[in-house]
Amino acid sequence: MKPMPFDYARAKDVPDALAALADADAGARVMAGGQSLVPMLNLRLATFPRVVDISKIAELRERSESADAVTLGACVTHGEIEDGEAPEPAAGLMRHVAAGIAYRAVRNRGTIGGSASLADASADWVTTLLALGARFIGRGPDGEREIAAPDMFLGPYFTAMTDQELLVRIVVPKTSRDATWGYYKVTRRSGEYGLSIGAVILDPAREHASVVLGAASRTPLACTAAAAALRGAPRWTEALETALRTAIAEDLARAERPFEPHEAIMVETTILRAAAQALGVS
């Protein structure tokens, strides 16, 4: 189980990386932490003439904080976020999510930008960043542009970035201080990809609620009806649960395909439990 031959180039900075991507015929592929890419190469499921390693680009390792947002370079690792070596925008949600991705040995090299670029709907960041309303900054031959989370993830391995663009950083809006969140992931084996992920963020100070269902379809599903049902809800009640179930059914009906009965049960559970957690019920 060894990869096909390829060339390797280590980009020293972003322009260097963009130059490598500019020549479409060269077929270059960006590698950040390589924790998804190298397995695919090893399995010969993917093959590229050239791999451009961006993991050492200093700019992509930067992280910063402003009054209303945290900005993370694309090559910040899950492990760094887990360890609090990056600012936390969302009352601990990002640290919590990071700590639950695969295994520590993978988190030490895997990056948030790499995960977002793969756009696997069962990956934690894809779901979480959509729930947080993150913005993705891509840089290409024509300079930088910003892509809002709902426009970013188009399908597995398919984002709004073009082949000549590089995801350079992710801007995550800060929640209010008293915002709460719930994150519920169903896995059959610890550290595996989720079968279903529910991410709920409640920010009463901003009258904002967001609910995202991950892993259950090709792209994460923004559950707007469920979010509406949760907006302003002060606590978990039976009435709220009933209303949420109705709202979830409404959201699921908008999904790209009908859910099998067993999937419907699981995703409903996922969202309900994430919501309950956000309202302080474990």
């Binding site: 169903v186 059959r188 079968l195 099998e260 009965p261 067993h262 999937e263 049960i265 699981m266």
Partner: peptide, 12 residues
């Protein structure tokens, strides 16, 4: 007995 099998049986 996977989640799929258990949940399907519960549903049925």
């Amino acid at each position: 007995i996977t989640p799929k099998r258990i949940l399907t049986a519960l549903h049925d």
